[in-house]
Nucleic acid binder design. Structure first.
Length: 114
DNA sequence: GCAGTGACGCCGT
DNA sequence: TACGGCGCCACTG
């Protein structure tokens, strides 16, 4: 193992950023990566979620920048994510989150669309 | 070291 | 809104 590797620390920050997403709210992969201090590492976030084993991790609150579920429509992950989001009161139509806007930058999360 | 692949993002049409 | 193309990063054979 490499407990002191920077990749491990980054993964920890990413998971923390995902946990920080409030119930009923959603965030984009890029936004999560940005919060973790890893701008441009959206794919790394996806890889982490794909291999996460923590059932408490609100991975379903992470969407693409388009506001759509990243899984292919009809797949197991797609159905599961859609179901979990709806359980939290999030309106999901055709695999897309409605009534909310995916922040692509920290400014939008803090200040809003403007 | 190179090529292929993916729960991505941005831009142009 | 939908599609296609290109770029970027990390992992695997």
């Amino acid at each position: 193992m490499t407990p002191g590797s920077p990749a491990d620390a980054s993964a920890e920050r990413i998971l923390a950023a995902v946990h920080a997403i409030p119930i009923g709210q959603v965030a984009g992969y890029g936004e999560v990566a940005r919060r973790a201090g890893l701008p441009g590492r959206a794919r790394l976030v996806a890889r982490l979620l794909a291999g996460n084993e923590d059932p408490r991790l609100p991975w379903h609150r992470v969407l693409r920048s388009d506001g759509r579920i990243a899984f292919p429509a009809g797949s197991t992950g797609f159905i599961e994510q859609e179901r979990r989001l709806r359980a939290e009161g999030v309106r999901v139509v055709a695999g897309r989150v409605k009534g909310q806007r995916i922040a692509t930058s920290v400014d939008e999360q803090v200040w809003g669309p403007g």
